[in-house]
């Protein structure tokens, strides 16, 4: 066995961290989309990722649909779950307070997890990597091609969302709801519709995260909660509500986890993320990009 130099070892941790971090970033972006419109933390965000992975396995492996069909079909189905979540659990609540709505999302996440266990059982499922599993060696680090897919899709999501929020009137209307819901109604924006849209969008992004990560880390019914915690940590780290913050927070979270696991002990992998989360809440609850001055770039 050839000895791997310390630098390539570090590089390996970095690449792994950025890949895992891309998944956290997508989860965090999903949190922010809903939070910005409703001030709700949607605790079912992780379930969207889990469903994305498992439904993709069903379409691609179970039904042998080609990737290019299975992927969009999965995203559409999970988006429908997001829409149902809003229609069945959020929108019917008569006198909504942020707390009751958050509790509703927790209940929904438990329910979704239960249904997933009923359908798929408790075993993890594998998904073929999009372009094979022959690793590429860069600077001595061994990189799975799937890593590029994960990071690539984060970039696609970011670009698509920035076009949506910057260039379209619906995107602007969603930002307007976030800023001032009553004023949004006064100009004719149907706020309930925008909330529905926010659930649909973040479900779709969750599905993308789930589909792209499953070939690397497998997927099982109860993965959602930990993903939600990490993604939430990333959103807090970057400053809740800030999209650039979510991406930065996710990547930092992934990197800390990867370096911590590699250099200290992989047994504490999940602990590192939680320690970071607690440290942020202690020392800078507004997050890295949560300052008032920077809130101008709150949305892409």
């Amino acid at each position: 066995m050839e000895t791997i130099s310390f630098t390539s070892q570090l590089f390996q941790y970095l690449i792994t961290g950025l890949t895992v971090g891309s998944v956290y970033a997508m989860v965090a972006v999903g949190f922010n989309i809903i939070y910005n419109v409703t001030e709700i933390i949607n605790f079912a965000q992780g379930e969207f990722v889990m469903l994305g992975g498992l439904i993709m396995v069903f379409f691609h492996v179970g039904m042998a649909l080609p990737l290019v069909l299975a992927f969009p079909a999965t995203v559409i189905l999970v988006t429908l779950v997001g829409i149902l979540l809003d229609r069945l659990a959020i929108s019917p609540i008569r006198q909504p307070s942020v707390l009751t709505l958050i509790i509703a999302t927790i209940a929904a996440s438990i329910l979704i997890k239960g249904i997933a266990m009923f359908i798929w059982g408790k075993d993890p499922f594998d998904l073929p990597a999009f372009s094979g599993r022959n690793p590429i060696t860069v600077m001595g680090a061994v990189i799975q091609p799937q890593y590029f897919w994960v990071i690539g899709f984060l970039i696609v999501v970011v670009i698509a969302l920035s076009i949506f929020f910057d260039r379209t009137i619906i995107g602007k209307a969603m930002s307007a709801c976030a800023d001032n819901a009553d004023a949004a109604k006064l100009v004719g924006i149907n706020v309930k519709q925008m909330i529905l849209l926010s659930f649909a969008l973040s479900a779709a992004i969750g599905a993308v995260a789930g589909v792209t990560m499953t070939p690397i880390s497998l997927m099982e019914y109860d993965r959602g909660a930990m993903l939600a915690v990490k993604g939430f940590g990333a959103a807090i780290l970057g400053g809740l509500g800030s999209f650039p913050g979510a991406i930065l927070g996710g990547l930092i979270m992934g990197a800390i986890e990867s370096f911590g696991a590699g250099l200290v002990s992989s047994g504490y992998k999940d602990a590192f993320a939680l320690i970071v989360l607690l440290a942020v809440l202690f020392f800078k609850p507004s997050g890295i990009l949560g300052d008032i001055e920077i809130s101008k770039i709150k949305r892409f």
């Binding site: 009137i169 602007k172 307007a176 976030a178 001032n180 004023a183 006064l186 949305r299």
Partner: peptide, 24 residues
């Protein structure tokens, strides 16, 4: 309605606020 205390979309630009007025 021009509401009390203006109720602008504070994080959006002047131009976006004006355009959103035509949303309907």
């Amino acid at each position: 309605l021009v509401p009390e205390g203006r109720q602008l979309f504070a994080h959006l630009s002047v131009q976006d606020n004006i355009r959103l007025g035509a949303y309907h």
